[in-house]
Every structure is written in C-alpha cells, then in structure tokens.
Design a protein around this nucleic acid. Structure first.
Length: 592
RNA sequence: GGGGUCUUAGCUCAAUUGGUUAGAGCGUCGGCCUGUCACGCCGAAGGUUGCGGGUUCAAGUCCCGUAGAUCCCGCCA
C-alpha cells in the first residue's frame, strides 16, 4: 500500500506514529522557510508541516507542489500546540511532520476553483465538462456517498423482507404508449430495433407469474422526453412487485422501506404508518395529486357561504355547477400588486375569469375589489370559515372544480414559495390513494391514468358499464414534500376484467396482441394476484440530500438537452457503423 | 414545439446617458517571508465583451439574427 492511513483518519491517538499519507494538495502555505500543505482525500484533510530544519529535502519537494498535485508524504504524527488547533477539521488536533515528500503526479491548474464556496457559484456547464474535478469536492462526494448508503439500506431491508433482486433486460421491446423509447438498431435482423426499457413493468409482472413472489430491483430506466431539473433521460427506480397482496401489504412494506432510507440518510425515522389521503381529498384540499403538507393554506370551499349571494360572478358560477374556493395566505397582505397581476395571468390561463382577492389591513379593514358586493352575513361567514385575521391575503377562484382545484393548487405553491414560508429540513410523506382509473383526453377518449393493468376498486366495477369516468383504481402514489416519489397499483389478474379494460380503452385485438400479447398469454397460466410500485431513486436521493437538482446526486449526469458535456455524447458515428446496423440517415435540412 | 433568464480575463463579477487605453477580487506566474490553516506583503502577465450583421462621428451598452447554458410550459402510461 502506498499509504498507511487516509487523510481523515489521524487523531491525537496516533501522535508519535510513523505514517504515510497520499492525497491531493488542497492548499500550500509557504512561509519562506516552514511550509504547510493541506492534504486532501475522500476521507478528509490533514495538515502536513515541512520544516527545512527537519528535512531540507522534503521541504524542497513540498515547495514545488501546486494545488491538485498528487503526493505521498511519509512522516511522524505530532500534536499541534494548543493555540494552533484547527477546530474546523476533524484532524485539526494533529499534524503530519513531513520527512519525505514524493510527487506522484502533477496537475494542470483546474479550469474552475475546487474550493467549496467558489465552486458552488461556477456555471454548472463548466463543472460538468470536467466532472471528474467537480467530483473531488466534498459536497459532491457527500451526495454520491448518501446515494450509496440509501442503496445499501434498500437492499438490506428488501432482503430482510424476502424480496429477491432480479435484473431485467436493458435491450427489450418497444412499447408505443407512454414515453418515447430510446431505440437500438439490431444488426442481425435488418430493420428491427430493441428499445431501452421505460420501466421493467411487464417483466416484473412476468416474474410474479413465474412465482418469484417478491421482486425488487434498483432498475435503470430510459425515457426520451424533454428534461427538467428533476428529470434525466436515464434514471433509477426502486422497482417492487409482490404476489398475494392487497394494497395494505404494499403500504406496509414501502412505509418500512422509506423509514430505513430516512435513517440511512441521517434523518429522523418517520412515524409509521405514513399518512394517507384519497386522490379526491388531495385535489379538494390541496389542488394537487402530490400535495405539499409542509404548510397549510388549504383550499376551502365557499359554496355554502355564497349560496344565496347577490354577487353575480359567484352566483353564476354556482348556478352552472361550478365551485367557489379560496386560500388564506396568512400574513401576506403586504404582497405587491404586481404579484397579484402576475397571478391573475395564471388564473386566466387556467380558465378563471380573473383573480379576486382580499388584503386585510393591520387595522382589520378589508381592501378588495369585490367585498363591496358581499352581504354583511357573507363577510362574517367568510371571516369565520377562513379564520381571516389582520395581515392575511385571501385569494379566490370561482369556476368548474376541474379548473379551480389545479389553479389554486398551483397558486398555493407559488404564493408559499414567494413568501418563503415552506420549512426546510422537514419531511412530510403522504400516500395518495384511490386514483381515478381513467382520464379523458381532449378528444373524449378514455386512457389509463396509471396503466391498463391497474385493477379497479371492486365496489366500483359495476360503474365500468355505466359511468367509467367515476371508477376508482387500486392505484396509489407516495408523495414527499410535494414531490411524487413513486407510483403503483394492484394489477388485474382476471382475464375477463382485463378484456373489459381493453374494450373501454378501445384497444384493438391487433394492438392487444402486438403490445401486450406475451403478458396476456402469461396471465392466462395461473397468474397470482399481484401488485407493486416503483419509486424514483434519484428523486428520493435528491430529497434526502436536500440538493437543488437531480444532477447533484448523479455521478455523471446529462444536461437539459440530454448531452453528456464531459463525454460529448451523443455523437455522430462513422459510415461503417451505420452500415452494419442497416441505418441510413435522413437528416433535417438545417443539420449539415 | 413555446416562454423567461443568462453569456465581459482561467473563475466570480463591475463598467454612469452610447464617449479616453474595458476594471476589481480570486486564481496563475515571479520575488520576499519560519506557525499558517481562504497565510501575509510586493510585482507581472492575462480580453475577438459568445458569434454574425446593423444603426452611429463613436457600441460591452441600442436594434436584428444566431449559438450555448439554465429554469418553466407542452411532454414524461
């Protein structure tokens, strides 16, 4: 071994020992005679002292080092004088007296400062181009180490629960629904393609048919869609499937899993079971199927308050079957009018006529363009229902519920973010259950909200014939701090019911066969009742790490356009490679 | 596909109403310095103001186009 200890290992216990350290030069402080080197590796930082009076040769070599040189230092551990202890680093009580310094490798000057504070401000593009240097920073390493700890915790817990990790293929079959597939041309049979999996959905169900009973996988998934701060073209899911279970069993497992992940990430163990609410309740109270429960400002229905109102706008909405709802943004009366103007634009884009508001002055008077239309009793009822106090800002929306809820849900988040009231360092989980089985497209067609193998709630099965839009599914999301962490369902294992689903979804026999034939065939051979979930591992890591983008917890992430700035991928390939896989390019005219 | 923001030295930024030779801190290089820990002090080098065009006596600054980055909408069963 080239080293006896790491740069984070030495303490006062080692004083007097002869040791060898290796690492990167973090800083050199040259006093003309005596010279200090902060030596850094993954484990920490240790101060090396080179005094020409101790070893002229070592001091000479040390003098020629520069930041990011890789060196080996042999020497003796010495306690620092009491007034020279550095309390900010773990090894601050000792220093290594350099008796021999060897330069293992030199380094060019990095293109950006690796110093934590400064690096945090550098354009991400530049850091990504030289990600291997960015990775030397402790904060980046912390993210990857956290991710590792999480993965270990997941595997340990799932193993204890009798789950088997099974790898499913990366080269698989294209499924035209859902996200766009990444395609891989097949050399052997010209004109055919593999697709990279968007998720191991069908494989995991086939594993249940195969009797694996409990399956999980840290599964890499690929989706060729436009990216976001929390979305990469390739990402990792904790994929889970179980046989002979109902949703309660699944909640139990995932509750336990998330508790272990929280602990492994250095956070408090959440109280179990994790809270639950129905999809309907989430939409009604928070205007979102992924409610952020870290703050209040809930949506409140005012239909009863304004049932008899003379205010025409509200009366007309109620008459046409719409709803009137409001949120009380506590203490936000002082918000500038230009914010309200901005939100009015948002309101109109969601189909509202406008955005009504009340700003409650400190003296208790209500400043609002609409209050003058309210009856005295309505004002009082409103005050009581929304607990209106001086300093509050009340925002109204009146329209059809399907427009009001999403709008107020978005407004609630915007206003809370603007006010800066969302507490940091809190973790508020919730299950959202009983998702609708279908949603209606603009063209009036029914499509699966989750996927076509999702089972309807047994008591809602009769509605499939009469009012399919009202059917609730045994489908659920797990949500943390307003972020959808994962999504799953209990699957259909009854071929007759599955057939009915395809009829409702207007899937033709042909499509059925080409897209799901293998799965349908398998389900006919004694498929056990089963269900599962997939959790976004990168997103979970991001939330545990408290970072800003998913790129913070991925070693080599791609940018917003799916480009790996370091490798410069994707790239063109040469004609021979294209010829081998029988591909001819047909590029748009602007590409030269 | 659409919208917002950004692009000036290696890095982070500044530059008045369009007006002299585009500045600062950090970093880099050289010199000095024997207890610092973001060491200190002295000095130096370093610029096609993303790129292309236009307006003007004069453009980092105004206009048009374009490239790249980033965030959002659409999209992501």
């Amino acid at each position: 071994m080239k080293r006896s200890h790491t740069c984070g290992a030495l303490t006062s216990e080692h004083v007097g020992q002869a040791v060898t350290l290796c690492g990167w030069v973090d800083t050199v402080r040259d006093h003309g005679g005596i010279l200090f080197i902060d030596l850094r590796d993954r484990y920490g930082m240790t101060q090396v002292v080179c005094d020409p009076d101790d070893s002229a040769a070592a001091a000479e070599v040390a003098k020629s080092t520069r930041p990011e040189f890789v060196i080996q230092v042999k020497g003796t551990v010495r306690a620092r004088p009491a007034d020279m202890v550095n309390a900010r680093i773990a090894t601050g009580g000792i220093e290594l007296v350099g008796e021999s310094v060897t330069i293992l490798n030199t380094s060019k000057t990095p293109p950006f400062p690796l110093d934590e504070d400064k690096a945090a401000k550098v354009h991400e593009e530049l850091r990504m181009e030289s990600r291997y240097l960015d990775l030397r920073r402790a904060s980046v390493q912390r993210g990857l180490i956290l991710r590792h700890k999480m993965a270990i915790a997941v595997r340990k817990f799932m193993d204890e629960q009798e789950f088997i990790e099974v790898e499913t293929p990366i080269l698989t079959k294209s499924t035209p629904e859902g996200a766009r597939d990444y395609l891989v041309p097949n050399r052997v049979t010209p004109g055919t393609f593999y697709a990279l999996p968007q998720a191991p959905q069908q494989y995991k169900q086939l594993l249940m048919v195969g009797g694996m009973d409990r399956y999980f996988q840290l599964a890499r998934c690929f989706r060729d869609e436009d990216l976001r701060a929390d979305r990469q073209p390739e990402f990792t899911q904790i994929d889970v499937e179980m046989s002979f279970v109902d949703e309660e069993d699944l909640y139990g497992i995932i509750d336990g899993l998330l508790a272990e992940v929280m602990v492994a990430s250095g956070h408090p163990r959440p109280e179990l079971p994790l809270p639950r609410m129905s999809w309907h309740e989430a939409m009604d109270r928070f205007g979102s199927d992924k409610p952020d429960l870290r703050f209040g400002w809930e949506l409140t229905s005012l239909a009863d308050v304004f049932a008899e109102t003379e205010f025409k706008v509200f009366a007309n909405v109620l008459k046409s079957g719409g709803v009137i709802k409001a949120i009380n943004c506590k203490g936000q009366a002082g918000i500038p009018i230009r914010m309200i103007d901005e939100w009015t634009v948002l309101a109109k884009s969601h189909g509202m006529g406008g955005l009504a508001y009340i700003r409650v002055q400190e003296d208790g008077t209500w400043k609002s363009p609409i209050v003058k239309f309210f009856a005295e009793a309505e004002v009082e009822a409103l005050r009581a229902k929304l607990s209106v106090e001086p300093g509050d800002l009340v925002l109204f929306a009146a329209e059809q519920a399907k427009n009001v809820d999403p709008f107020l849900g978005k407004l609630r988040l915007e206003a809370a973010n603007h006010a800066g009231i969302i507490p940091k360092g809190e973790f508020k989980f919730t299950w959202v259950t009983e998702f609708p089985l279908f949603e209606e497209t603009d063209a009036g067609r029914l499509v699966s909200m989750h996927h076509p193998f999702t089972t309807p709630k047994p008591e809602d099965v009769p509605l499939l014939d009469t009012d399919p839009g009202k059917v609730r599914a045994v489908a659920y999301d797990i949500v943390l701090n307003g972020v959808e962490l994962g999504s799953g369902s209990i699957r259909i294992h009854d071929p007759a019911l599955q057939g009915k689903m395809f009829d409702l979804l207007k899937v033709s026999e042909e499509e059925k066969e080409s897209r799901f034939g293998h799965l349908l065939k398998a389900l006919a051979y004694g498929a056990p009742p089963h269900g599962g979930i997939a959790l976004g591992f990168d997103r979970l890591a991001l939330l545990m790490a408290g970072g800003k983008t998913i790129r913070d917890v991925i070693a080599f992430p791609k940018n917003h356009k799916g480009i790996d700035l370091m490798m410069d991928a994707p790239s063109t390939v040469d004609a021979k490679q294209l010829h081998d896989v029988h591909i001819q390019l047909d590029l748009p005219p602007e590409v030269e």
